[in-house]
Write a protein that binds this DNA or RNA. Sequence first.
DNA 1: TGATAATTTGAAATCGATACCAAATAAGCT
DNA 2: AGCTTATTTGGTATCGATTTCAAATTATCA
Lengths: 331, 331
Amino acid sequence: MSHITLDDVAKVSGFSKSTVSRVLRNDPNVNPITKEKVEQVAQRLGYIPNIVARSLRSKKTTTIGVVIADICNPFFPSVVRGVEDVAREKGYSIILCNTDEKYEREKEALNTLIQKRVDGLLISPVQKKFDDLLELRRQKIPFVLIGRHFDPLEMDHIVTDDIRGAFMATEYLIKKGHKKILFINGPLYTSCARERMAGYKKALVENNIKLDTKLLKEGALKMEDGYRVIKKAISSKLDFTAVFAFSDLVAFGVIKALKEQGRKMPDDVAVVGYDNIDFGFSLELPLTTVHIPKYELGSEGMKLLHRKINEKINETQKIVLDTKLIIRDSA
Amino acid sequence: MSHITLDDVAKVSGFSKSTVSRVLRNDPNVNPITKEKVEQVAQRLGYIPNIVARSLRSKKTTTIGVVIADICNPFFPSVVRGVEDVAREKGYSIILCNTDEKYEREKEALNTLIQKRVDGLLISPVQKKFDDLLELRRQKIPFVLIGRHFDPLEMDHIVTDDIRGAFMATEYLIKKGHKKILFINGPLYTSCARERMAGYKKALVENNIKLDTKLLKEGALKMEDGYRVIKKAISSKLDFTAVFAFSDLVAFGVIKALKEQGRKMPDDVAVVGYDNIDFGFSLELPLTTVHIPKYELGSEGMKLLHRKINEKINETQKIVLDTKLIIRDSA
DNA sequence: TGATAATTTGAAATCGATACCAAATAAGCT
DNA sequence: AGCTTATTTGGTATCGATTTCAAATTATCA
């Protein structure tokens, strides 16, 4: 006795495979009495449906792929949690893949996910290239981008209003009297870095502050990056009174470097982060930051994906969630 | 043209399905010249193997289930990352499920994972009941418990030495002169809470300190729990000079409450946490804590699972990883 | 009551691969 | 050359469900 199959249930209950299948799928076209009988037999035999077989025939796996940079980046757990909650509710499981911000890894992940025939994908794309995404489109596999988007490519996505987020952060610093705001931005191949740059510049322009390109740094993703930039800035005597960091993680590095250099926060240097990750509040000086609705990014993204999978929506859906400034003590 | 199948590749290349299948699986029993030809055709047609079909026949899905309490609990991302890295390397994908520490959710998760025919499971069990795990065993599905274990049940697991961890933490506090150490433990249905309790008591005994049950609290899992316990302890004038918390998360709550009550750390009250999560260092006063090798818990757990799946190991494997005390400033 | 429609059931084909065994071909050796 | 063995290939059954379409049964109503 290897495993009880639908066949076994059919034989024992005396009904056909078709009928048994209908019962187990809760197909309404079946006599309640029959249903009852079949269910009892299934129960008694300890029948466990084989979803692999079902998937092969029905061409649905009730599984979706979630491709992110790194679950250890405190930005992502909430996103993934949002996805999983909605996915579970709708009957999907999620396969999680980390790319470490490497295009090749993203491509590999998408490949196996395609081969495993996931019903759809939620992707926080690396954005160094996008051939792999075009391939998804060619395969007609529904997918939704999370947190980043490719502007001219007309792909479904859910993002946050980063122009506004960066604008608010920068303007807040300006209103506090800062004119020399060091902007440690992320890699410019990401849409969010480009948009935050736009927000930063917009705030400067509207407040008649001339852009100083020496105050623009890019490519920061991790704590070390923030740390390194500050160390270098200080050793090269760069003049700045405030720092706007690409992420809270980067801001943490900034704060660490500042502390080591004996610069006081927020008096010597004001610091504003981005993301509003947990524990940003538990710093020596709670971090002022721009809040991103991370959970909603995931949950709403999954809802959109679900619609994409089940309804035939042709137009590209673009969702933009609001950001908001969280004022605490670091600026 | 819906999708290119192995059949199509066979027809176009002129070889049989069997041969084509062998080529695509890298079976060595095939003429290199044939292999070359078939691969070219597959490439040209844009053939994408259907792993669902393969899984049905081969009874292997190259997918494993990962069941944890909550990816948003900062303890888990590293664990999951460790799992995923090794899994990917060995050719597996991971399906992630959150249980929120609820038995019913765990049971549901295991059910769908069984139905999806995962090759194995990594589980951080809720431990309120374990019928679902016995069912896994009955189904002969390999699984490894992570971070928690059921002592008399002889199940494979990978855990940390929590008796020693709690012992070290407690003894450290004692050596610092503390005699009244409030122990805010986790729920006693978890093996780790019970072991930490044992470590705590052992340290007291070895140092001739009488156990005061009023200093024992249990059931704490989240920040709020730590916060609440301290508030209540202080309002009821409980006498303590140190706190040993079940987790860093709980310790954060403790610290918050302490701060609100105007008690200084570490002079009025010393605090020690557990887990050594990221950002524990970035507190006002960096947190003294017990380090758990989270990544290794995941990666080694996955390695063990892989062996369990591929070799027929009958004896139960129990792995115990070392904990270590991280001395910082909070105690 | 008899014709028609609705409900319920079943038989067979199918999803796309792998497994198993047999056949064909090539290689090795006395 | 002739026989044995190794290598390579092919045919068919199979994994375990769903789908499609037809048949049987029951219900509806003039």
